[in-house]
Amino acid sequence: MTVPKTSVLVLDCAEPEPLARFYGSLLDAAVGPAEGDADLILVSGPTGVLLGVRRDPGRVPPSWPLPEDSQQVHLRILVTPESLDEAEREAVALGARPVAAEGDDTRPGSRTTQRRYADPAGHAFVLAALGEPVG
Results as ranks from 00 to 15, higher is better:
60 V>Y: 07
3 V>R: 00
1 M>Y: 10
118 A>E: 14
44 S>V: 06
14 A>C: 09
99 V>L: 14
32 G>A: 07
114 Q>F: 14
32 G>M: 05
118 A>L: 11
65 P>D: 07
124 A>H: 05
35 E>H: 05
37 D>W: 04
102 E>R: 12
34 A>Y: 10
81 P>V: 08
28 D>L: 06
39 D>K: 10
80 T>S: 15
42 L>S: 02
91 A>K: 03
39 D>N: 13
96 A>L: 09
37 D>G: 01
131 G>E: 07
58 G>I: 10
86 E>D: 13
34 A>I: 12
121 A>M: 02
85 D>C: 07
1 M>P: 08
4 P>I: 04
14 A>R: 15
113 T>R: 13
8 V>T: 15
34 A>K: 09
102 E>H: 09
24 G>S: 10
41 I>P: 01
87 A>R: 03
72 Q>P: 00
82 E>N: 10
44 S>Y: 02
100 A>I: 06
52 G>Q: 05
119 D>F: 06
67 P>Q: 00
50 L>E: 01
44 S>M: 03
92 V>M: 13
27 L>T: 01
8 V>W: 00
56 D>N: 11
9 L>F: 10
82 E>A: 15
30 A>E: 14
92 V>D: 08
38 A>N: 06
24 G>Y: 05
123 H>N: 15
73 V>Y: 06
36 G>R: 00
14 A>D: 11
131 G>H: 10
71 Q>P: 07
44 S>E: 11
84 L>P: 11
69 D>R: 09
